[in-house]
Nucleic acid binder design. Structure first.
Lengths: 240, 240
DNA sequence: AGGACTTAGAGTCGTTATGACTATAACTAA
DNA sequence: TTAGTTATAGTCATAACGACTCTAAGTCCT
C-alpha cells in the first residue's frame, strides 16, 4: 500500500515527514514613512492542506543534499533568491502543525541585501509582505516568523548582523535605520556612530553618498565573516 | 519490499530517517584536583552501526510525541535521567553522518543538578565521561558534543545558566567554580561576587554552609525561570 | 547671493560597569 | 593561641555609555 492511499489513522503511524523551510528577511521602504522596514517573501500554497494560503518557502529534503543545501535549492526554485546569509533557525515538530500527516520542519533563516532581493521572481504566487503586518499564514508559520523576529532582534543587539541587510556600501545612518526598524526604538545618532566606529569589520571608504539634500555622508563597507555551513551560529558574549 | 531488505543504493533513495538525541551535562569532581568539572552520560551502541562504541542517548521519534517529549522519554528510558533543564540545540543533517542510511538528528541538550544526576542507572552500557576527555564516539557525536560545549560557554558568559548545574542551595563560590570549569579560566572571587549580587533571580537565604575548614559561606537560591517547551531559547542581549 | 534647513560628525560631561587590588571577618586545624 | 583558609566588603583607576552641545557641509528657497 502506498502512503497516498493510507487513511488518517494509518498515516498517524507512519514516520513523520521532514521538510525544510526558510524565513527570508529583507529591507523595503515603508509606504507610509519611507523609512526602511522588514519584509519577507511568501509563496502561495498550490496544494492541500492550506491550499491558496500564504506560507514560507519550503519543501522536502532530497536524499542527496545537506539541510542547508536543501534550504538554498528550495529558495532558488520557489522564489529565485540565493541569499549569502543563511543559517539554521530551529526545528519545529509539534504534534498538530499540519492536518493528518505528522510534519517536522527544520527552519532556516536568511538575510538578503537589496541586490539579492531584486532577483525575486514575484508573481501571483510569490510576494513580499511586511513582517510586522502578516495575515493568517498556513501551518504554524505565523509563530515561526515571530520566533525568527525575536532571534533577529537578539542578534541585532549583539553585533554584526545589520550589514547583511544592506548593500555593499552603506552610511552609518543606514545602519542605524536598520537597528531602529528591527528593534523598533530610536537611537541617538552620535552615540550610535561612536559605537559602530569602535566595532571591528566596519571599514570607512573614501567615497561619499551624494544626492541627498544635506551634507554627504561617508560610505562604509562590511569586511567581516559571513556564516556558512561550518559556522553554525554566533551568539553573544557577556559577563554574568 | 521492506526497508530492512533494501540494499545500499536503494536505501539512499529512501526518505531520511529522523532521530532525537541529547547531550546531558552534569558536574562531578575531577579525580585529580577535586574541583567540579563537566561530565556527560553516554550509552553503548548495542546494534550496528558503531556497535560497541559510546554514543549520545537517543532514538527515533514516536508518532505521538513532540520533539521535546521524545528527548525526555528516550533519556528516561536509556539513562534514568529526567532533567528539568532541556532545550533544543541544533539539527544535524550532513550527508555522511551514518553509514548507508541517511540520518537527520535533532539534538537537545540538558543540564542536570546533582540530585537529578544521582538517578542515573549506570551499567556496563551507561556511564559518565569527562566532557573534555572523550574517546572516539559513534557517528559525529564528538562534533555534536563540541558544539554543545561551545554553546554552553556562550550561554554561561551571558547569564542564568550555571545554577541549573548546581543544587537547590549553593554558595557564590560554587557558582564561580562552575564558571571556571566551563570557561576554563580563573575569575576574581571578589569581583565575581559583586557581579552576581547585582544580577536578578539570585536570592540570599539565611543559611550558611557549615563543615568547611574556614569561614562558613552564605547559601543562595536561584529563583529565575526554567526553559520549557514554549520558551525555546534565551540568548544574549548586548549593544553593537 | 544669502539665509534657512537638514543631517554629518566631533567632542564634552557625569554616571556606571569593570578589573586589579587591599583589608577585615569568621571559621578550622594544630 | 596561632596559622591557614576562604568569605565578604571596600578602594581606585580606567573604560563604556547615555544625554547633550557644537560645528561642518551640503541643498533648497527667495
Amino acid at each position: 500500500m502506498s502512503p497516498t492511499s493510507a487513511n488518517v489513522s494509518e498515516r498517524s503511524q507512519e514516520p513523520p515527514s521532514l521538510a525544510i523551510s526558510t524565513v527570508i528577511f529583507g529591507l523595503r521602504p515603508s509606504e507610509a514613512s519611507g523609512r526602511p522596514t522588514l519584509w519577507l517573501p511568501l509563496v502561495r500554497r498550490i496544494r492541500q492542506p492550506y491550499l491558496g494560503q500564504w506560507a514560507l518557502p519550503g519543501g522536502p529534503l532530497a536524499p542527496s543534499e545537506s539541510l542547508q543545501d536543501a534550504a538554498s535549492r528550495n529558495l532558488l526554485e520557489t522564489t529565485g533568491l540565493a541569499p549569502r546569509y543563511l543559517e539554521q533557525l530551529y526545528a519545529f515538530g509539534g504534534l498538530h502543525r499540519s492536518v493528518g500527516q505528522r510534519l517536522v520542519s527544520i527552519v532556516y533563516w536568511a538575510l538578503v541585501q537589496p541586490d539579492e532581493a531584486e532577483l525575486t521572481r514575484e508573481s501571483e504566487n510569490v510576494r513580499w509582505f511586511r513582517a510586522d503586518r502578516l495575515e493568517r499564514l498556513a501551518f504554524d508559520h505565523n509563530d515561526i516568523v515571530e520566533y525568527a523576529l525575536w532571534r533577529l532582534r537578539n542578534k541585532m543587539e549583539y553585533g554584526s548582523i545589520a550589514y547583511h541587510l544592506l548593500g555593499e556600501r552603506f552610511t552609518l545612518a543606514q545602519v542605524r535605520e536598520v537597528y531602529e526598524a528591527v528593534l523598533d526604538k530610536q537611537l541617538d545618532p552620535a552615540n550610535f556612530r561612536r559605537q559602530l566606529r569602535a566595532t571591528p569589520h566596519i571599514e570607512a571608504t573614501d567615497e561619499y553618498l551624494t544626492g541627498t539634500r544635506h551634507r554627504p555622508p561617508r560610505l562604509y563597507r562590511y569586511a567581516g565573516p559571513v556564516p556558512d555551513g561550518s559556522t553554525r551560529q554566533s551568539q553573544a558574549v557577556r559577563a554574568p
